[in-house]
Design a protein around this nucleic acid. Sequence first.
DNA 1: ACTTTCAGCTAACAAGTGTACGCCAAAATA
DNA 2: TATTTTGGCGTACACTTGTTAGCTGAAAGT
Lengths: 208, 208
Amino acid sequence: MTGVRAQQKEKTRRQLIDAALSQLSAERSFSSLSLREVAKEAGLAPTSFYRHFADMDELGLTLVDEAGLTLRQLMRQARQRIEKGGSVINISVRTFMEFIDDNANIFRLLLRERSGTSAEFRAAVSREIRYFTLELADYLQAANQLDHQIAQYQADAAVTVVFSAGADALDMNQAEREELSHRTISQLRFIARGAADFSSRIKNKKTT
Amino acid sequence: MTGVRAQQKEKTRRQLIDAALSQLSAERSFSSLSLREVAKEAGLAPTSFYRHFADMDELGLTLVDEAGLTLRQLMRQARQRIEKGGSVINISVRTFMEFIDDNANIFRLLLRERSGTSAEFRAAVSREIRYFTLELADYLQAANQLDHQIAQYQADAAVTVVFSAGADALDMNQAEREELSHRTISQLRFIARGAADFSSRIKNKKTT
DNA sequence: ACTTTCAGCTAACAAGTGTACGCCAAAATA
DNA sequence: TATTTTGGCGTACACTTGTTAGCTGAAAGT
């Protein structure tokens, strides 16, 4: 079944993806990458690119999928660490900061294409972030017995704040990141406190 | 003093700026604009561009400045409306949403270049947003008698949430925006509530 | 009135872009 | 074994890009 051919094809497809990913940096966005550059980096003739993707957009959307996968790994890792005890917020922020370090370019891709020029890209990134947020909302609702909508709002705000902090972290040195983490943790506490407060009000209203 | 010549130069410089601004859209980012396109739109020969800007980056930074100016107008307008009474958060969100409508492309510029490929651009945008945040922090501290750092954190979180909502709003229809506004208002309340709570704790600590 | 300054022009260039076409060798299929 | 499929290549084309060099006419300066 897994013929030599299909295997080889998958391999060079992977090379194209990795080539694109490796060329991303602070100074280089996906949209500034040319088909020829990516093909060259992958050790392919420009025209061979078409054997794997119809155009750069298709490659880009694949990368966004990949990023979504990474995001889910992040969530999983944070959960595992939380299970072992400790402040949920502290652990989450630290885990996220590690993620930024290890996957800076993937994170940059998400940040940039979220407000990019392709509606399809924007939708794809939004979708990935929405999944991420939804998962967090479920967790918050269950863990803190919150009103459903309030948990949604809290999750959304938290993700927004954390992602924004991640974006800022990209341009920072270690000392600055420490301070940033502290700020982010405080902000997440604000949000959690406020959400808990409003949620209990709603419940009191319902039971009286 | 204001020779015919200098006046004319200023005018075509303005044309270049406006040309660039007018070509920005959901599908077109500043970085995807070429010098030739901008010159053409301004009714100039490509090479005449250099009489006004050294390169596209210089034009772009001018645009960011312009955006900062608009941001300050936004803040001023929100304040005026707040003085006339009403919920601060409600008015702020509504004013911001209007701003998004009227200045969609300027706002897109800020969003995109904030995570763009030019360190100089990123710094410029950060600076404008920092001013904006600082102004809000001062206001919050004075109005709600908050701890200084907490006011900073609150302002930062609020700006983050509102900007993020603005980014989302760009791709939405009217009905969706209504819901988005509602969500944003709730999130700002969470943050404000949490900040107030933590701030009063600090003060109690200090006075005991 | 004479000279200098300079915003704007045209022409031209080298470099890079996406993509169409056709060829080839090796794997897959019959 | 004979045939078909297909991943990869080289060539070629039409475009767009930023930028240099040099000219011109009118405003500014003397």
